[in-house]
Amino acid sequence: MGVVCVTALQGSGQFVLFSYFAPILRERLGADATQLGLVWAWFGACGVVGNMLVSRHIDRIGASRMVLVTTALIALSLLLWPLGVSLVWLAILLTPWGLGCFATNSAQQARLVSLSPSLAPGSVALNSSGIYIGRALGAGAGGWLLAHGAIDWMNWVGLVTVLAAIALSISVDRARTRTLAINA
């Protein structure tokens, strides 16, 4: 369940801001529909590349480490978000997030399968629930911040939540290592 909670925290941290890209980019950068479409297309293309890279390297790096890498990429973009003062800069800053955003879910699923192959159907299904719970919580928090004029806090709330996901992920791995050492 710790791994599923990591997924929920990842989703929550991302969706504080991700859910509101369109109104924020319109307000802050004057983005029109075409520019918003290009930002989404770029983000999606980065997501495809990220998933391809994870698929290619996960066996060598390991699922748990890949989760940390992909989540750190998301955290990097959330940290640098305030520097996105133009659409070009924003696209550059969104690249790490795009690479990590969808790939982290793939890595989490591989992690769950490797932890207990016999429980994989149930654990992967629970992970999907974690994704949706996280998205709902993040979007709710982001909506609250947006409604209260706290747009400048959205990336920071997201970042803290994603950093909590990283801390929990490390904690889950350490607990598993200790358990395996005791049982050996």
Rank of each mutant, 00 (worst) to 15 (best):
C5M: 12
V6K: 07
V6G: 13
V6R: 04
T7M: 04
A8P: 00
G11S: 11
S12A: 11
S12Q: 14
Q14E: 11
V16A: 12
V16M: 14
V16H: 09
L17P: 03
L17S: 10
F18Y: 09
S19Q: 04
Y20P: 04
A22Y: 09
P23C: 00
L25R: 15
E27M: 09
R28I: 15
R28L: 14
T34Y: 04
V39T: 13
W40Y: 12
F43D: 02
G44M: 03
G44S: 01
G44A: 09
A45N: 14
G47T: 14
V48I: 08
L53T: 01
S55M: 13
R60N: 14
I61T: 03
I61G: 09
I61W: 13
G62H: 01
A63Q: 02
R65E: 09
L78Q: 07
L78P: 01
P82Y: 05
G84Y: 02
V88L: 09
V88R: 15
V88S: 14
W89S: 01
W89A: 11
A91L: 02
A91T: 11
W97V: 09
G98L: 13
G100F: 07
F102T: 06
S106G: 07
Q109E: 13
Q109G: 10
A110H: 09
A110D: 12
V113S: 15
S116A: 10
S118P: 01
S118I: 03
P121F: 05
P121D: 06
S123G: 00
V124I: 06
N127K: 08
S128N: 10
G130R: 02
G130W: 03
I133R: 00
G134Q: 01
G138T: 08
G138K: 05
G143P: 02
L146C: 15
I151V: 15
I151T: 05
D152W: 06
W153T: 08
V157W: 02
V157M: 10
G158E: 10
V160G: 06
T161R: 08
L163S: 00
I170G: 06
S171C: 11
T179M: 14
T179R: 12
